[in-house]
């Protein structure tokens, strides 16, 4: 896929992976627009893209749990873009949240699920219909290896990411006949604020390397991409451990 002059919206652009991905896409000549919760930071990121890649990157406010606003946002970006419309959407928002708190406070659990899953379903409902009607486009969803198997340390976040991956899979099945590409990205440990300073991290990848992997997968028309690549094998092993053993493990 040639990304030159493609118009792309990145949701949750303040995250390290999303920002690196926005840069990588802009490097390929795409017009990248950014949205997120913290508009001050989002504007900074839009300015940065505009200066570095000599384009007009626009900044938008986006709240994952404010479902009603999602359709308006897509229309806004599309209309601001004039003839460029919208060719691609990156769903990179989401939050690790506080697992311990979520175990006793359903509100916390719900907030994690909304920001990682329900919010994504909401915006993608509109985007999918738009791309389907348009007959082309792509969706990149940042899921997680945490969604491949439930673990006691992060199963609320993990289940939301797992559900998101399933949703993307179904969406891919539906949209492939309309020429719309849907990519599920499953990053392993990446040097972001989720991993910074945490014990037990290994083989931590840079956001830039992950972004390069994603763009490569996009151009090669891939469906599911683990990044860095070896996480596919790590997760394969983890998924193969029989449940009677797995349930007793400390993970």
């Amino acid at each position: 896929m040639d990304l030159k002059d493609k118009s792309i919206l990145v949701l949750g652009a303040t995250s390290s992976i999303a920002r690196a991905l926005a840069e990588e896409l802009a490097k390929q000549g795409a017009h990248v627009h950014v949205a997120g919760r913290n508009l001050t930071e989002i504007e900074r990121i839009a300015n940065d893209l505009s200066v570095r890649y000599q384009q007009q990157s626009t900044a938008h406010s986006f709240q994952a749990a404010d479902f009603k606003s999602h359709e308006t946002l897509l229309n806004q970006v599309e209309s601001k873009n004039g003839k460029h419309g919208l060719d691609g959407l990156v769903v990179a928002f989401g939050e690790l949240g506080d697992q311990i708190e979520a175990q006793s406070e359903f509100e916390q659990a719900k907030s994690i699920i909304d920001s990682n899953f329900t919010g994504a379903v909401s915006i993608l409902t509109h985007a999918a219909n738009h791309f389907e009607k348009q007959g082309h486009g792509f969706i990149i969803g940042i899921a997680s290896v945490a969604g491949d198997r439930g673990r006691q340390s992060n199963y609320i976040y993990g289940s939301a990411k797992g559900a998101f991956a399933l949703f993307l899979q179904g969406l891919r099945n539906r949209l492939c006949k309309s020429g719309v590409q849907v990519i599920t990205v499953k990053p392993g440990f990446v040097d972001t604020k989720m991993t910074y300073g945490r014990q037990g991290m290994f083989l931590v990848a840079s956001p830039e390397a992950v972004a390069q992997d994603i763009v490569k997968a996009l151009k090669a028309n891939k469906q599911v991409v683990y990044t860095p690549w070896f996480w596919q094998w790590i997760m394969l092993i983890i998924k193969t451990i029989p449940e009677p053993i797995f349930m007793k493990m400390k993970m």
Binding site: T14, S16, N38, T40, K193, Y196, G197
Partner: peptide
């Protein structure tokens, strides 16, 4: 004790 904030707030 090193911290790496990602937003100005």
């Amino acid at each position: 004790k090193t911290v790496r904030p990602e937003n100005w707030s």
